[in-house]
Design a protein around this nucleic acid. Structure first.
Ligand SMILES: [Mn+2]
Ligand SMILES: [Mn+2]
Ligand SMILES: [Zn+2]
Ligand SMILES: [Zn+2]
Lengths: 145, 145
DNA sequence: TCCTAATTGAAAGTTAATTTCAAATATCAT
DNA sequence: ATGATATTTGAAATTAACTTTCAATTAGGA
């Protein structure tokens, strides 16, 4: 909650720096996004936002998320093939395990893997800019049939 | 080239088993795909196929690749966000390094990473079905500015 | 050869993302 | 506070990639 306020301040800083405007729609969308603090489709965030203000349209949420991404406050993910998901950028890098039954997403971060992929890249002289490592399967709950 | 013939035989086996037909279009598409032996967009394969037979349409290539995927002879990849790429299934599993400058794709396979991700999953009781690990950055050639 | 189910290719439809544009609004300079 | 103006909004239109439909064609067993 207070984390949300910090993030909002960072957003306001970015808006001001870019000569963009603070609006009640952006405010509501960003605040909702930060406090939900999870992986959301545009449509899903729209639903949450509209509980507070039913007048807000899809495109405005789309553009607000694009802005959050540009400002480094959100990450856009492309799991599987469907819609993309957005999540607050929060802490550092992490990768994902996605349950193909229930859609549950678990985050993970493993230093051995991170380091090892640096070595694999270095071996062929490839300079890493980013990476994604996604593990698909069944989460514990979905294995109880 | 002889590898291609082996793969064609596997395709024919699959077609027969499923009561599907052997056609000159499928033959041309699959043969072209196997001999190019690389990562291709549907449109790219279409261009190659049309050099041999300009009458073949996009949808036929699309359906042939879908069939190859179903039969296990091709993999469909979703790098970045654009069109998907298909590649002959060939040997075993591998992951990819994609150059964000020139689009070059290098394959890699690292047992340390493969084993480690099993451990990471096991730790939280997640049962892995598949995974993808993509590294984006600059290939050696593209680093010479 | 004949019959029938499978295939083809053009066109239409779908889905998610993106752009356009006129009306509304936020911010800056009086 | 008022006015000027660039930005933002939301509905509608457009795009891009894929997927389905359907009538005409073709493969392959009887
Ligand atoms: Mn995440
Ligand atoms: Mn590959
Ligand atoms: Zn699950
Ligand atoms: Zn390159």
């Amino acid at each position: 909650m207070e984390e949300t306020n910090t993030l909002m301040d960072r957003l306001y800083g970015y808006l001001h720096k870019k000569g963009l405007k603070q609006t009640k729609q952006r405010d509501l969308i960003a605040r909702t996004f930060f406090s939900l603090n999870t992986h959301l489709k545009i449509e899903e965030l729209l639903v949450e936002v509209q509980k507070k203000d039913p007048k807000v349209g899809y495109v405005t949420v789309y553009r607000a998320l694009k802005l959050l991404k540009e400002s480094g406050l959100a990450h856009q993910r492309h799991f599987g093939e469907g819609q993309s998901l957005f999540e607050p950028a929060g802490g550092g890098h992490h990768d994902h395990m996605i349950c193909i039954k229930c859609g549950n997403i678990t985050e993970f971060e493993d230093e051995v893997i991170e380091r090892r992929q640096e070595e694999v890249a270095k071996k062929i002289g490839f300079k890493i800019v980013s990476h994604r490592h996604e593990i698909y399967g069944a989460c514990p709950k979905c294995q109880e049939e």
